[in-house]
Amino acid sequence: MTSPVVRLTAVRDTPLRVDEVLAAVTHPAAGGTSVFVGTVRDHDAGRGVTALSYSAHPQAAERMREIAERLAADDPHVLAIAALHRVGDLLVGDTAIAVAIATAHRAEAFAACRELVERIKHGVPIWKHQTYTDGDRGWVDCDH
């Protein structure tokens, strides 16, 4: 079996393309590829949301790559990984995160993709500042 490969990780201030993460994890041994796309939704914790802004620590991209490499080392099923996160001002419907993972089988692809998203959410220093429909603004999920 081919060793796991982290093929693409980045924190960008430009729109993310799902086809880019999907293409990055193409692998001849892959029987399952799981993709997760996180988008800005119009509500959070019972409040309407109109927009948000993501800010990142200067080492956020490096941390994302470390997290992806750690997952590849921890999970022998992973063949290829790609992960992108957006920063800057986003509107409802915009893509905030796009990740893809290839494995030999679908169950492992689903599990590894979910694990990668959770590790990024909790381990990469990216912060979300939301604008609510009532005009109020606030920081959300600032646990790192």
Rank of each mutant, 00 (worst) to 15 (best):
V5M: 10
V5W: 03
V6I: 14
R7G: 12
L8C: 14
L8N: 05
T9S: 08
D13I: 04
L16I: 13
R17H: 13
E20M: 03
A24S: 09
A24W: 07
T26V: 15
P28H: 07
A29K: 07
G31M: 06
S34A: 13
V35N: 02
H43L: 05
G46I: 03
G48A: 12
V49W: 09
S53Y: 09
Y54V: 07
H57M: 10
P58H: 15
Q59E: 14
Q59I: 07
Q59Y: 13
A60I: 09
E62F: 11
R63N: 03
R63E: 14
E66I: 09
R70A: 15
L71H: 12
V78Q: 09
V78W: 08
A82R: 11
A83D: 06
L84D: 06
L90T: 08
L91W: 15
D94A: 13
A98W: 10
V99Q: 03
I101H: 05
A102W: 05
H105I: 06
R106F: 06
A111R: 11
A112P: 04
R114L: 08
E118T: 10
R119P: 04
I120V: 14
H122D: 09
G123S: 08
W127E: 00
Q130C: 00
T131D: 04
Y132I: 00
T133V: 00
D134R: 01
G135E: 03
D136Y: 01
D136G: 01
D136R: 01
D136W: 02
D141F: 00
H144I: 08
